[in-house]
Design a protein around this nucleic acid. Structure first.
Lengths: 245, 245
DNA sequence: GTCTATACACCGATAGAC
DNA sequence: GTCTATCGGTGTATAGAC
């Protein structure tokens, strides 16, 4: 808020933030102790709690910086799309691409360490301390609400509960994708080619987007679900054009 | 291994397991202390480490019982399908339904608390201590390998790396789905109707399966990914019939 | 083998002196 | 703002009683 009166005043706080970002990424949230963090930042242990209240508060501050940029871009993108559409509903694919594509943009604009943030986010999603999910949800409540309405408008003939579920499935798939190749290799034992540059995220997003749109446009489920798979007649028609963009 | 010589011998170990299953479900893994667990089980603190080596070892033992049944069913189902197909490759939907549908079967056969296990698994996926994922992966390595081959055979014309990625996306979507309605409501603030009986899992699986199959059968991605969404010509054809079952 | 009592090293948080 | 000292908590290890 106020101007820095002395150099040590602001530096100490920033050194803690820097050390936190680095250590949380390298060792995870629970794997990093406040004592190690204070030591690497060159500050006293109690200084960390003075500036950020708690370990959780420190983590939230680390995430918030980049999350705000992400939220801003998501809102801005959706605004631009709706303005260009001029009152007509957007295509579902446009909404999905705006929401999840913003993650790729973040990794591209690497000026302020967007890639690092994305890796931290992935690492965090792999070992969420619980409160982090709640924090992420709270931080983006208005953004999600905007995209919810956009999806409803884009799919007027689809029951809203189905849209909500599929959006949730999409979030899950995206989380796993962001959590990274490590998990994939760990769970499956499969090797997947990856160049470690920014191209990595680009190819990942292309694959993810294709999958998400396929899932979003899938035929609606039938109830009750036929447990032992039997041959049935043709299902109900799709509710969205396959090729629409 | 050996027959129980005294009642206390076996009872103590089982009481720990029972208390662990109950508390881990109610409070999560990290939210449960070994002292509280030992107290509720009516045993000494050190007895827990004597029987299970560590807190992680205890959690693994809690999960293993049900996981073994899950693996067994997954292998048995795939065996039956391949036998019925008589050497011809399965349909992708058959493989996916066999793999993820087994979760629903587990919840149905509630004789041995399958539903409880599924909720514990969901709870666990929401706050995974990291080692849990590794444990799940190791425990099911052979099962995943079998399904990998089945998917490769079912989709001979699709590059294997794409199949691997989409399988990963499917795992992510399914994890979120299992993690349950709580997370969905937390993140989105949306209310979703749910009767709390076994019907709940049935409707969930129907929705999940429709989404997964849609994603699996989506057109393959194009590289490079067109960042600012533009209108393009028709994409490449799908690699699987929309209606095949 | 089964279990108990105890101790250890570490953690995050905080009160209070400076 | 920064520091020291300390508190109650954690998971774990071990010596020894039965």
């Amino acid at each position: 808020m106020s101007m820095a009166k002395s150099t040590t005043l602001k530096d100490s706080r920033d050194r803690i933030l820097d050390a936190a970002a680095r250590l949380f990424l390298a060792q995870g949230f629970e794997g990093t102790s406040m004592r190690q963090l204070a030591s690497e930042a060159g500050v006293n242990l109690a200084a960390t709690n003075y500036h950020f209240g708690s370990k959780e508060g420190l983590m939230q501050e680390v995430l918030r910086r980049h999350l705000d940029r992400l939220s801003e871009e998501r809102l801005r993108t959706l605004d631009a799309l709706e303005r260009a559409a001029g009152g007509k509903p957007l295509k579902p694919s446009q909404v999905v691409e705006a929401f999840f594509g913003s993650l790729l943009h973040l990794a591209d604009n690497d000026a302020e360490g967007g890639t690092t943030f994305l890796r931290l986010l992935g690492r965090t999603l792999t070992e969420p301390a619980g409160f982090i999910r709640a924090f992420l949800a709270e931080e983006h409540k208005d953004v999600i609400e905007r995209y919810r309405q956009a999806l409803f408008n884009a799919l007027p003939d689809v029951p809203r509960v189905e849209i909500v579920w599929r959006f949730n499935f999409m979030l899950g798939a995206a989380s796993y994708a962001i959590a990274g190749t490590d998990t994939l290799r760990l769970v499956t034992g499969w090797e997947v080619e990856e160049s470690d540059g920014g191209e990595r995220f680009e190819r990942l997003m292309a694959r993810l987007m294709a999958f998400l749109l396929g899932g979003l446009r899938a035929p609606l489920p039938e109830f009750p679900y036929p447990l032992p798979a039997k041959n049935r007649g043709p299902g109900q028609p799709e509710f969205d054009s396959r090729r629409g963009r």
